[in-house]
Computed example of a mutant assay.
Amino acid sequence: MSEERKVLVVTGSSQGLGAAFVKSYRARGWRVVGNAREIKPSDDADYITVPGDIGDPIIARKVVQTALDRFGRVDTLINNAGIWRPGPIASISEEMYRRVMATNVDAVFFATQVAVPAMQKQGGGHIIQVLTSLVEHALQDVPAVLASLSKGACASATRGLAMELARDNIRVNAVSLGIIDTPLHDPSSLEGKKSFAPLNRYGTVADVVRAVNYLEDSDFVTGEISYIDGGRTAGH
């Protein structure tokens, strides 16, 4: 087993952004371990898939441990898996609350907790969170308390971990997204959402991948939250 080639672990990798991250890093020559609740086995020896609910701490730990067992290292962890369930607070069931928090917060904590000691041992690494710009700028017409609670926690953790882990040469960054054309959005709704961004368009998966590539290559950047939202954050 060679430990020289870099290794990515990415959650929510069966479609949308996660699948694009897999493709981008494989193009770089990285080995990859990906996870989703339902994900097909890979016929690529350098891409291992681990099915299961990432909100379960056992699965979250298993995903990262698989990279260590199969490839011997973890260079970057992208905590991409997320659940988007807008709605007024009075309408949210306890079951839905716990499901969203498990996927959006618990999975981030437990996957990161396994990755960090491995990164410390190998002399460095990179952790990237995928957030929403609704955390900073809520909308009256889009009640999203679950997103604020879960992704807001991850935004704070991004900055906190960046400071905690800087001495270990582990960088921690995030991309905070506006409206992006992914399976999270009904395609028929995207035209009506263009006005959310001053650039008057919705974003693409390629926009987000470029931002992640920038963060990956920027060795002097940590604690950064990059807003991929067409200027919405800047305009508020």
Rank of each mutant, 00 (worst) to 15 (best):
I59S: 02
K40M: 10
N173H: 09
G192Y: 06
V142I: 14
S42Q: 08
K23R: 14
P187L: 07
A19P: 01
S189A: 13
R99Q: 14
V7P: 02
V50N: 10
D43Y: 06
R171A: 00
E94V: 13
A153E: 00
P88F: 03
S93Y: 01
E4L: 13
R159P: 00
L77T: 03
L199A: 10
R26N: 09
A234P: 02
L149D: 11
D141R: 12
G230T: 08
I48F: 09
V212P: 10
G52I: 03
G87L: 06
A138W: 02
S188K: 15
V142S: 11
G125S: 01
Q65S: 12
V172P: 06
K193C: 04
A138R: 12
V22E: 00
S148I: 13
D106C: 08
D219K: 13
L77W: 07
V205I: 13
P57M: 03
D181W: 01
A90E: 15
L134Y: 11
I128P: 00
A144M: 11
I89Q: 11
V108T: 11
L146Y: 09
G12E: 11
V9M: 00
D69L: 02
G160I: 01
V63H: 01
A197E: 06
V145C: 12
D69H: 06
S14L: 05
Q113T: 06
N80I: 06
E38V: 12
K23P: 00
R232K: 14
D69T: 12
Q140L: 13
A111T: 13
V205W: 03
V114H: 00
V114N: 01
W84I: 06
Y25M: 11
V50L: 08
L177C: 13
G16H: 07
M1L: 12
V10Y: 03
E4K: 15
R98D: 15
R201D: 01
T182L: 09
L8S: 09
A107F: 07
V142D: 03
A27R: 15
P41Q: 10
G152T: 04
T158V: 09
G52P: 04
G18F: 11
H126P: 08
A206R: 12
V74W: 06
L199C: 06
D217C: 07
G230D: 08
Y214E: 04
N169A: 12
E224M: 13
V74D: 04
I180R: 03
N80M: 08
Y227W: 10
L139W: 07
E216N: 15
T11V: 08
I92R: 00
Y214L: 13
L139Q: 13
R98A: 11
R5V: 11
G34W: 03
S189W: 04
D141I: 03
S14V: 01
E38C: 09
T49Q: 08
I89H: 01
G123C: 04
E94A: 15
L177S: 09
V74E: 05
V50F: 10
I92S: 09
